[in-house]
Amino acid sequence: MGLQEVWFILIAVLFTGYFVLEGFDFGVGMLMPVLGRRKDPRGDNRRRAVLNTIGPVWDGNEVWLITAGGALFAAFPEWYATLFSGFYLPLLIILVALILRICAIEWRGKVDDDTWRRRADWGIIFGSWVPAVLWGVAFANIVRGVDINADKEVTSSFFDLLNPYALLGGLTTALVFALHGAVFLALKTKGDVRTDSVRLARWLAIPAVPVAGGFVLWTQLAYGTGWTWAMVGIGAVALVGVVIFTQLDREGWAFLLTTFAIVATIVLLFGSLFPDVMPSTLDPAWSLTIENASSSPYTLKIMTWAAAFMTPVVLIYQGWTYWVFRKRISADQIPPSIGLPAKSR
């Protein structure tokens, strides 16, 4: 195995980590209006309890995306350039949504005012739903292929990206992330928030299983290889297991299985893509591959040594963070708001 194959796998691992960890962050934000009912007298406490489940870790989870983007730029600059120019609008929308979500999470408690908090909540909801959908659309189009000419430029328009396969991919990531988030909340909360999260996870599993199953099967039949059938099987078994374990109130096992389902799906997508990194629908000879899109061997060698040194440190630190904040949260434990009065803004 050469360094190009190694870095293709490492980038797949980074995106897998991002979608597993940020997936439940998105799910938590997507479910805030359901689990934090505004007509409930304790609605704000419920919303703060929901948000506090990801409070210590959400920003660390986003580091996986930054690292994946940096690795993509350094290891496969042609892939990075073609992807970010051809997918400029959807990636810009994702970036704006993530920035809005960051600001909403950080500033929500700064002012003790219901209107302020309501606007922040909508920022969190928008900043969670939009990336959850568009990431699925983007990766589905990467696997399907886009119009790439001989100059390695994408000539597809934004609306060309909204094809049936990609839209199914966006619906799949949205539903699976919402299910992942509901199971995570059931695992991290107690009291009525946990009860509602378990009930919501049971309902979300009903549409998530057939939609995700249809997308995975379409991917395998149209773009997969022989060995990726194993990922289809793992994903299918995992999603069925989620349905069973949510019914049994075993949220720990259910969360592990939603994680397996996400991992299997990402492995299927990258496995279907290899050895291409961006297939061309105009002419296969114009496709970007790990060979014609990579950096020099010397660059890849230096990156490999740096990754070998830094990766264990990052993993140990992030694992320690999750261990420290492992206990469940209840709405009854939420203290009064200490934000500035509205008139002080």
Rank of each mutant, 00 (worst) to 15 (best):
L134H: 11
P131N: 09
W116S: 04
I105F: 15
V137Q: 12
W122V: 03
I124V: 15
R117D: 12
L92R: 03
G86Y: 05
W116K: 06
S128Y: 12
V137E: 13
S85E: 04
R119K: 12
V146D: 07
I94G: 08
R119P: 00
L83D: 03
K110F: 09
F126L: 07
N149C: 00
N141A: 13
F126N: 00
I105N: 13
R101T: 04
R117P: 05
I148W: 04
A97M: 04
G86C: 07
G145T: 02
G127T: 02
A104K: 04
W135D: 11
F87S: 04
A104W: 06
F87W: 10
W79S: 14
A120N: 07
A138E: 08
D121S: 10
D147E: 15
L92T: 07
V154W: 00
R119W: 13
N141V: 07
T82E: 06
L83A: 15
I142L: 15
L91I: 13
V154Y: 01
R101Q: 06
D112W: 02
V96S: 00
I125F: 15
A97P: 11
D113H: 12
V133F: 15
D147M: 12
D121P: 03
R118P: 02
D114G: 05
D113K: 10
A150I: 02
